[in-house]
């Protein structure tokens, strides 16, 4: 059986206490929320914190409220999120992203904040200690080379969060709290294209909330590519949101997930959609623009050329759904399930 390394466990009761502990522990302390990302990584010795700061005893992180828009606690589990009718009705992209994460049991554990901070993934990195030893490790942990592209000076591990692209499309904001203060950052600014330093979150900050603006006039959707109907991380995703005036798009955000070390905003495609109706031609053109943005690498499931090629098709699915087409059949075919919240 794979065993966790030895560690010290601390259980703060408030965000402030957690932030203080995080500051005290420095680089050897890590936050534990649902455990579905950190614990496998610890078992594989990819991450070996000396101290684990468990957040499950922090009630503030599990609160949600709806002033203008929606505030969601980062400690909510993905299933709690999916069961919230406001999420499903008003922010379908977030619902669709969350409901397609991993499996039902894992969604009962994994949290919103955890998925946003999900470690980047790579076939050379998400391996046991012994395996990584056999390749002399990689840049992201214990080694020097990025085996995905040995000449690369930066790590090319893949952003594999489902909810981040969705929240980017929805224009979400996160709140980051440290012992010495807090700040709000747009989700799109939470990430940077570096497989090791993929978050702009400072080490001593805790992601506590996600804030969503009111959804009136917006439609949104999330499409995920993976081999199987459950378990798998995305190896390509398209999140799209558009604000409509009648049939005309007044604002749009198209975001690609899992084709770089961060979710990629397709600014050109998004700008192109503004002022247009989502006709077949417009969708086709926008899909072409979106395709140009993605640069998948050979470090996930499926061949990279194929992943690159189907970006356009997945963008089309998303935009067709945004214009109101019933995409249920395609959903079932591609996602292999109905995207209904389960009890």
């Amino acid at each position: 059986m794979m065993r966790l390394p030895r560690f010290e466990y601390r259980a703060p009761r408030s965000v402030q206490e957690a932030a203080t502990m995080l500051a005290e522990e420095g680089p050897s302390g890590m936050l534990l929320a649902g455990g579905t990302d950190l614990l496998p990584n610890m078992k594989r010795r990819q991450q070996v914190p000396r101290t684990v700061i468990g957040l499950r005893g922090v009630p503030e992180l599990r609160a949600s409220s709806n002033g203008s828009g929606l505030r969601l606690g980062a400690g909510l589990t993905l299933n709690e999120l999916c069961r919230d009718p406001r999420v499903e009705k008003l922010y379908p992209a977030l619902f669709q992203a969350a409901v397609q994460v991993a499996t039902g049991q894992l969604r009962n554990m994994a949290t919103l904040g955890g998925n946003l901070c999900l470690d980047t993934r790579c076939n050379y990195y998400d391996q046991n200690y012994e395996w990584r030893k056999a390749i002399d490790f990689c840049m992201k942990k214990d080694g020097e080379t990025c085996w995905v592209a040995p000449s690369s000076s930066k790590c090319l591990a893949v952003s594999s969060t489902d909810v981040a692209p969705a929240l980017m499309a929805l224009g979400g904001i996160v709140r980051l709290v440290a012992a010495d203060g807090e700040r709000e950052v747009a989700v799109k600014d939470l990430y940077q294209n570096d497989g090791i330093h993929y978050l702009t979150r400072r080490r001593e900050e805790i992601l506590t909330d996600v804030l969503l603006e009111p959804s009136a006039g917006w439609r949104s959707t999330y499409w995920k590519l993976r081999r199987r109907g459950s378990f798998d991380f995305p190896v390509l995703s398209v999140a799209a949101a558009a604000h409509f005036d009648g049939d005309e798009v007044t604002e749009a955000r198209v975001v690609l997930g899992a084709v770089a070390s961060q979710p990629l905003a397709c600014d050109e495609a998004s700008a192109f959609l503004v002022g247009k109706q989502l006709t077949d031609d417009v969708i086709q053109e926008a899909a072409g623009l979106a395709s140009k943005v993605g640069r998948p690498m050979d470090n996930t499931d499926f061949l990279l050329h194929w992943r690159k090629r189907v970006i356009g098709e997945f963008t089309r699915y998303a935009l067709r759904e945004l214009r109101g087409e019933d995409m249920t059949e395609d959903r079932v075919r591609i996602a292999r399930h109905q995207l209904a919240a389960v009890p």
């Binding site: 076939n123 998400d126 391996q127 046991n128 395996w131 056999a134 390749i135 081999r227 199987r228 109907g229 459950s230 378990f231 798998d232 499931d301 292999r336 399930h337």
Partner: peptide, 17 residues
């Protein structure tokens, strides 16, 4: 090396598949 000696990356059909 084995490309992906894990039950996640060695793909086997789930109930949905």
């Amino acid at each position: 090396v084995h490309k992906f000696p894990s039950i996640l990356e060695y793909k086997s059909p789930t109930t949905h598949d």
